[in-house]
């Protein structure tokens, strides 16, 4: 039908709406279902859905939403989470388990336990955080397909 398929990859784009907890997780849930339809191994699905869900929640809590691009190729699932939020002041600290700058009302909802970034790193094979204060943050994560 179209030669878009020639690139041997699936590209999915999602918009994360700001401050709406009821919709947080929508994108990761859609990706999860697509991965299942593709017959991707359950372990890869688990890693991708957790990493992406955590990232999505972060975008809602800290960054007034943003854009997610997921690229699925035979080698990896690549996730790019891009926001124009406030940026992360101290990336090293943010990567530590338990460190959180989430406001009180967010923690009251059970979010903001300081496990977001550490969890994302734990679930992915590669992770890069590019951030600039006042400009925004782009997190790129990759989960490799295992050749079973």
């Amino acid at each position: 039908m179209s030669d878009q398929t020639g690139s041997a990859g699936v590209v999915l784009k999602y918009t994360v709406s700001p401050d709406d907890f009821t919709r947080a997780g929508e994108a990761s849930s859609k990706v999860k279902n697509i991965l299942k339809q593709m017959g991707i191994s359950p372990d890869v699905i688990r890693k991708v859905s957790i990493a992406m869900y955590e990232g999505e929640i972060n975008m809602v809590i800290h960054a007034h939403g943003g854009e997610i691009t997921v690229t699925i190729t035979p080698q990896e699932v690549l996730m790019e989470l891009k926001d124009v939020g406030p940026g992360i002041e101290d990336v090293e600290k943010a990567m530590k388990a338990g460190y959180s700058t989430a406001p009180e009302q967010v923690r009251a909802l059970g979010f903001g336990a300081g496990m977001g970034l550490p969890n994302m790193q734990g679930c992915t094979d590669e992770m890069k955080v590019e951030t600039e204060l006042g400009v925004g943050t782009t997190i790129t994560m990759s989960v490799h397909m295992e050749d079973k």
Binding site: T5, A8, G9, V10, N33, I34, K36, Q37, M38, G39, I40, I72, T73, P74, M145
Partner: peptide
């Protein structure tokens, strides 16, 4: 719920 057999095939199908 898998659409096809190989990963490449499924990429095209998705």
């Amino acid at each position: 719920f898998k659409l096809g057999e190989s990963l490449l095939e499924n990429i095209n199908k998705i």
